[in-house]
Simulated scan of single mutants.
Amino acid sequence: MSRAATFGELRIDGLGRRFPNGFTALDGLDLTVQGGEFMALLGPSGCGKSTALNLLAGLLEPTSGSIWIDEQRVDTLPSEKRNFGMVFQNYALFPHLTVAENVAFGLRMRKVGKAERTARVRRALDLVQLGEQADKPPGQLSGGQQQRVAIARAIVVEPRLVLMDEPLSNLDAKLRLDMRTEIRLLHQELGLTTVYVTHDQAEALSLADRLVVMCSGVVQQIGTPAEVYDRPANAFVAAFVGYRNALPARMAGGTVEIAGLGWAFPSERAQGADGDAVAMIRPDDLLIGGPETSRPIPLTVRVCEYQGRTFAVEGRTADGTVVHAHSLEPLSPGRTVDANVQPERIQVFPSDAGSGTQEPALVASGEQS
């Protein structure tokens, strides 16, 4: 298999897709992907990430913008001329063909000779550890094996870009973890350039070199996993990457005061930005029985769930705000406790600066549609 990336950069300039009914699925996407990079498009259902992937693949036509590979414009080319590999969510394997015949399909379309075709199929199946399954129909394989066949089919043509559309969403939890590792290893070993669509923030953080977080067809933040995780750009991004708690607050004079708690802390975002705000905290940063140096948030326990090493606690503050915290011991419903947080672990945003927090908070807690 080819080892090195075959281009310098993929450049997306102002790419958009507006449907005849007036709905804008993607609004002016600007993005540069370096050769050999693993880029993940992350967001809830309907955010435009799959639309962007289908525009890249040539399965949809853009209504604005352009796509370039180095100095070559590719959005004007038919999909079969772009030399991109595609891995679909539902595998899209031919049930009447064997595993090897499925993998060879793209090579046949490219009129690759039989000897070379056979050798390349064998190498691709060995890479995904399915060499012994070559003569079986896909229906005799597990879901994880079928997805590996789909990946082998995408890489066997030695594409200059691999596009993956939620490839792990149909697998169980253990298989998803295993396949995440395999996809990352293949990307590294073959020097692939990959654009990967997912709604799973843990998947995106573990796989990608950089993330593009999207909402309603608009990019909210582009950055490394560490940048997005530690420094979300707005309340939407924060909620989507796990800042599940959103407490009303106020910024004034460079400090932030969370409503009803009687304590304040300095914040860079509060410098010269007086007004209403939202203070966002990860549940694992809000500890019941935490260190004395942290600040308390009194709450009444509603639910306490065992999660192995810790307990997940849902409670309410005095003003009725729902709060999610962690505890090292079980707590009975109705008990009043202090959940403690280090102020530096709190992200603060002006109330009118984000896209809202309710929808991404639900997604981040595993309730995505």
Rank of each mutant, 00 (worst) to 15 (best):
residue 211 L to M: 08
residue 231 R to G: 11
residue 235 A to K: 03
residue 222 I to M: 12
residue 222 I to G: 06
residue 222 I to R: 01
residue 241 V to M: 12
residue 208 A to S: 14
residue 236 F to H: 11
residue 232 P to K: 06
residue 212 V to W: 00
residue 229 Y to S: 04
residue 209 D to T: 06
residue 236 F to W: 13
residue 237 V to K: 08
residue 226 A to M: 12
residue 234 N to C: 07
residue 230 D to I: 02
residue 207 L to F: 09
residue 209 D to V: 06
residue 241 V to W: 12
residue 239 A to T: 14
residue 240 F to Y: 10
residue 232 P to H: 05
residue 228 V to A: 08
residue 223 G to D: 04
residue 209 D to W: 07
residue 239 A to G: 15
residue 220 Q to W: 03
residue 212 V to M: 00
residue 211 L to Y: 11
residue 233 A to D: 02
residue 235 A to H: 05
residue 221 Q to T: 04
residue 229 Y to F: 15
residue 224 T to F: 09
residue 213 V to C: 13
residue 207 L to M: 15
residue 228 V to W: 01
residue 210 R to H: 03
residue 238 A to D: 11
residue 214 M to C: 08
residue 216 S to R: 14
residue 223 G to R: 02
residue 223 G to F: 00
residue 234 N to R: 12
residue 209 D to L: 10
residue 220 Q to K: 09
residue 228 V to D: 00
residue 213 V to T: 11
residue 231 R to D: 14
residue 228 V to H: 01
residue 224 T to S: 15
residue 219 V to F: 00
residue 226 A to W: 10
residue 240 F to Q: 04
residue 227 E to G: 02
residue 218 V to A: 04
residue 207 L to D: 13
residue 237 V to S: 14
residue 237 V to G: 10
residue 235 A to N: 06
residue 236 F to E: 04
residue 233 A to V: 09
residue 226 A to C: 06
residue 209 D to C: 04
residue 239 A to M: 05
residue 211 L to K: 05
residue 217 G to Y: 02
residue 229 Y to N: 03
residue 231 R to W: 03
residue 232 P to I: 11
residue 230 D to K: 12
residue 212 V to P: 01
residue 225 P to A: 13
residue 213 V to D: 10
residue 215 C to Y: 13
residue 221 Q to V: 07
residue 210 R to D: 01
residue 236 F to G: 11
residue 211 L to N: 07
residue 232 P to R: 05
residue 208 A to P: 06
residue 230 D to Q: 13
residue 213 V to N: 09
residue 222 I to W: 08
residue 238 A to C: 12
residue 240 F to E: 05
residue 207 L to V: 12
residue 210 R to G: 01
residue 222 I to C: 13
residue 214 M to F: 05
residue 214 M to S: 07
residue 214 M to G: 05
residue 225 P to L: 10
residue 229 Y to P: 00
residue 220 Q to V: 10
residue 209 D to Q: 06
residue 213 V to L: 14
residue 211 L to C: 05
residue 238 A to T: 09
residue 219 V to L: 02
residue 219 V to W: 00
residue 230 D to E: 15
residue 235 A to C: 12
residue 229 Y to T: 05
residue 229 Y to K: 06
residue 227 E to C: 03
residue 227 E to A: 14
residue 238 A to V: 09
residue 231 R to E: 14
residue 215 C to S: 14
residue 238 A to M: 11
residue 226 A to V: 14
residue 219 V to P: 00
residue 221 Q to S: 01
residue 221 Q to W: 02
residue 225 P to F: 04
residue 216 S to L: 14
residue 222 I to A: 13
residue 231 R to F: 09
residue 221 Q to H: 01
residue 208 A to Y: 07
residue 236 F to T: 07
residue 216 S to T: 04
residue 218 V to M: 10
residue 221 Q to P: 02
residue 235 A to D: 13
residue 233 A to G: 13
residue 210 R to F: 10
residue 221 Q to A: 01
residue 220 Q to F: 06
residue 227 E to H: 07
residue 231 R to K: 14
residue 230 D to C: 12
residue 228 V to M: 02
residue 221 Q to R: 00
residue 233 A to I: 10
residue 237 V to R: 03
residue 207 L to Q: 13
residue 229 Y to M: 01
residue 223 G to Y: 04
residue 215 C to H: 15
residue 234 N to T: 11
residue 232 P to T: 08
residue 217 G to E: 11
residue 216 S to N: 03
residue 209 D to Y: 06
residue 239 A to V: 13
residue 237 V to W: 09
